[in-house]
Design a protein around this nucleic acid. Structure first.
Lengths: 198, 198
DNA sequence: CAGGGCATGTAAAACGTTACATGATTGC
DNA sequence: GCAATCATGTAACGTTTTACATGCCCTG
């Protein structure tokens, strides 16, 4: 039983990815909503993200559907921790999703949209956007490279295998982005000097 | 005046990117909703997309807000073409959006999510996903490379400059994706033979 | 003593996709 | 004759974000 999906008769059914992300994380051990948010932010934010405001309602739905169970832990003054654990049925759901073909979702890269409309602004404005995009990606690359190096040390447990693979994807994507920025910035510079001398 | 944005008092205001995409395309000349959809699908689908069901209502909103005008063209039996043109106010909106810093939207790459959960399925299943992802990206790369080659010919008009830059971004990103797939597939092969012999 | 982290959750709203509805023309 | 393209638009639905609401504890 899939929880959140279209009930449209005859339509192709598409379930929320958030629920599978949750199920996948819980498959590695019980966690609270807050824990899940932290794990997403700290480990996989280079290719996935979730907001707390969405996580909580989806966790409740998963509970109602019997795909997870909930227990409580004292909060020491803070609100009680709600700790969720995956059930056998949840594991089956996860397993069948994991076997389904990957659904490619079309990207929306605002930096490229502004680039495409480059003819409608001064070249220097676009240049500034590309520079700040480059800086952001360079920052991200540095982090990903250091994480990848750590995960590649021989002492690292085999558990890190798949995380390392995703980090590697981030490294290669970030390098490609930087390479594009450098090319684009060079082209912009050429255009700007052309205009000045022409 | 920004059209589609939060009316929440005191909140940071964020407008729909669809409206700016439309404004940007109309800045190059009048088009119908159908034309816009085609242009998006044929030229910039490697980094942006729009659905007709969303385009039509946003065009109406833009019309109400005075950022575009509408004229009609006979449809020759088909429904009448509604042709939209950007107004001076629309150009100002576009210009100010073009100057705003680029908002980075966090990605959601399902292939990497499934990779991250690789420990919960047989390695061969993940391998198959990566292979089909690779095939898809290879197909895309071939198209982008041929488009890029065409746009790089000396005879090509200077109008193609920014389109060519975005295509180049697609080429580099696709190559990086292929490189990752090859590495990941090699790692998976090693794991599978390890398991068989161990 | 202020700010950030811990920790839960709700409410409002926007965003966007897909299916539905309709129907003629063009190409295979 | 059948499918695709042209061409508009609405309706239903689900997804997700952001702001709001609350309040203690720890660190600088």
């Amino acid at each position: 039983m899939v929880v959140a999906r279209s009930r449209r008769a005859g339509g192709r059914e598409k379930a929320s990815r958030t629920q599978y992300a949750i199920l996948g994380l819980l498959a590695a051990g019980p966690r609270s909503g807050y824990d899940i948010k932290k794990e997403v932010a700290e480990r996989i934010s280079h290719f996935w993200n979730e907001s707390l405001g969405h996580l909580y309602p989806v966790l409740s739905r998963l509970l109602d559907a019997g795909l997870v169970t909930r227990t409580y832990e004292p909060g020491n003054g803070r609100p009680m921790r709600h700790v969720y654990a995956i059930t056998e049925e949840g594991r089956q759901q996860l397993d069948s999703w994991l076997r389904e073909p990957v659904v490619a979702t079309p990207p929306r890269l605002e930096i490229l949209l502004k680039t495409y409309f480059g003819a409608h602004i001064e070249p220097t404005v676009l240049t500034a956007h590309i520079e700040s995009y480059r800086a952001e990606r360079a920052r991200q690359l540095a982090i990903l490279e250091s994480v990848h190096a750590m995960l590649s040390e021989p002492a690292t447990s085999e558990d890190a295998r798949y995380l390392r693979m995703t980090v590697r994807a981030g490294v290669l994507a970030a390098r490609a982005a930087l390479a594009w920025c450098d090319e684009a910035l060079a082209e912009q510079r050429a255009l700007i000097t052309d205009q000045a001398s022409g």
